[in-house]
Design a protein around this nucleic acid. Structure first.
Lengths: 177, 177, 177, 177
DNA sequence: TATGAATGAGTGTTCATTCAT
DNA sequence: GATGAATGAACACTCATTCAT
């Protein structure tokens, strides 16, 4: 409950823009209790990141098995799945841009890319070239789509399904030439 | 000087992660003087965003004129230009993900996309489809490359020129099929 | 075990500088258990003081019996004995200087002085004059020597035996003219 | 004003037993203002100690000049002078007993002892032996007398002048044999 | 006895902002 | 323009203490 609330607030206002007080209040727990479970505010963030990573690994396993679908439907399912992770995705993108942050985003991209690689071609190594390609034309656009979808639909005054279809079309035609 | 310092600190630590005190100290000005020039902390951020937008418009004008170059060299020049704007790009990406933020990123993308459009085909409207395509397969990857270039090169243990070439290659082959 | 740990931490960091948490952690007991044995934090301190007083009385009894030794050797033995009580002595000196503290130090001095008096001259009352003399030229220098011995040896860069001998010499020649 | 108040509260309740809040309240200043003048709570303590040391050095200079008086009257004047420093003396004694504290007490004792030495015998070095003698039979009893005078008079139910005379008598006869 | 979880009030410290000059 | 001083509210974090089991 604390972690869910923290994730929500962090993703809305950023890590520094969220007070532990506000987490406590929204999660309906005593502030001191938060410090009973977490060493400090940073530890809350780390815990969120840790559980995301575990979930990602778990998710990638299940993904491999549903091989029957075509690319478009696979991606559609992926987007629907990722929408549920919108908050944490925004948070990761946001915090990864800061100086102090570690390589959480890069590491997770590596995990995901390695996983995809192993489907297509078992022998291919994840070298810099592949990493950069997958990262900037696959990973980043996808995560940013999830993070910006709502706001952008509002800005463009279009509905989400339409936007998703347009995004899918251009993403597929660009990423899987 | 104040704006430059603020831009630097905001981009490193985020808006909320930066105190007006720290800006004053680093810019070597009295803290109260900052409040003489700016209404409040938010106003500093707005001013940065405003000048970025003006600069973007100016930049897009000059870009049109250098039509002699091929796509690759045009992009290379663009990346070299944008590298000088790394801080503010990180800042915009970072802050645009927050709830309270407006549509600054979307507006600037629109300006840039319209500009590009007008080169290729003056009559084509910037509809949702085009916007989404350009935004997620052009604008976002490019800005994220600028923002993450240094950190990612460190993570992958490769040099910037190599990384840029790989990025350019995959960006061109995906974005300009 | 709790009392020993508390004594140790109180003497190092002072009463207010020591948290019940830190006592529990260092004593390897549950924090709530401390409150099962002691009413509150103050009660821990009182218990320490109480047991010190009991020990003092016991100690003074045994002291009388070993009358065969000369002053110097008696004092030497006393210092060696008191060294084992260094922590609690520091604690008493420290806390006795605070406003809220009672007369624990004065009372114990009285007990000790009365005891000494009764050896020399049973009929002599412990009047103010004697008390003040014994307190400030006997009790206080001795306890402070115990409390400061280690730190002072480090400061003066001398060894403990040497320091003790010098202390004994000046203490005897001043206190037992 | 802040320093005076802090000195007062620190000496009553100890450093850790005094909150910055309480200092601000009693000194009638905004709490944040305290942090405008001092880096942190420790810095307040250091500042007190620093000014004490400066005052001590200044005081020792003036002391040398009034050579006409006999020992007893000199000491009496000294006690009257030190009474005005009662708070800070308690504080120093108290804090010096803690683990984390530096050698402030020892250093000041050294300054004072060196000064006295130079009066009596210019050629005599302040070696360990002299230091220990002066520290434990001179410095410590005197400071403790100042620190405990009031409380002890209350405990013994005697008046201050009487107590001072008794103390002076035993101090002189022990320290200046 | 013993413990994990919980809490209200407090801690030191920093914040954005203002004011008098 | 420019500054040192000032402030109330908030900050992250810890405290002594309690409760349910």
């Amino acid at each position: 409950m604390i972690l869910e609330t923290a994730e929500d607030l962090f993703s809305r206002n950023g890590f520094e823009g969220t007070s532990v007080d506000s987490i406590a209040k929204k999660a309906n727990v005593n502030k001191a209790l938060i410090y009973y479970y977490f060493e400090n505010k940073e530890d809350i963030l780390s815990s969120i990141f840790l559980s995301v990573q575990e979930e990602l690994i778990e998710h990638l396993k299940t993904e491999i098995s549903e091989n029957k679908l075509d690319v478009r439907n696979k991606l559609k399912n992926e987007i629907i799945y990722l929408r549920g992770k919108k908050n944490v995705i925004s948070l990761i993108l946001m915090e990864s841009l800061k100086e102090k942050q570690g390589n959480f985003l890069f590491k997770n991209a590596e995990i995901a890319i390695k996983n995809n690689q192993s489907c297509d071609d078992q022998n291919m190594m994840v070298n810099e070239k592949i990493y950069l390609k997958e990262f900037f034309t696959g990973f980043i656009p996808l995560l940013n789509y999830i993070a910006f979808e709502d706001k952008l639909c509002q800005y463009l005054n279009c509905n989400k399904d339409e936007a998703m279809n347009y995004f899918l079309e251009s993403f597929i035609s660009s990423h899987f030439k």
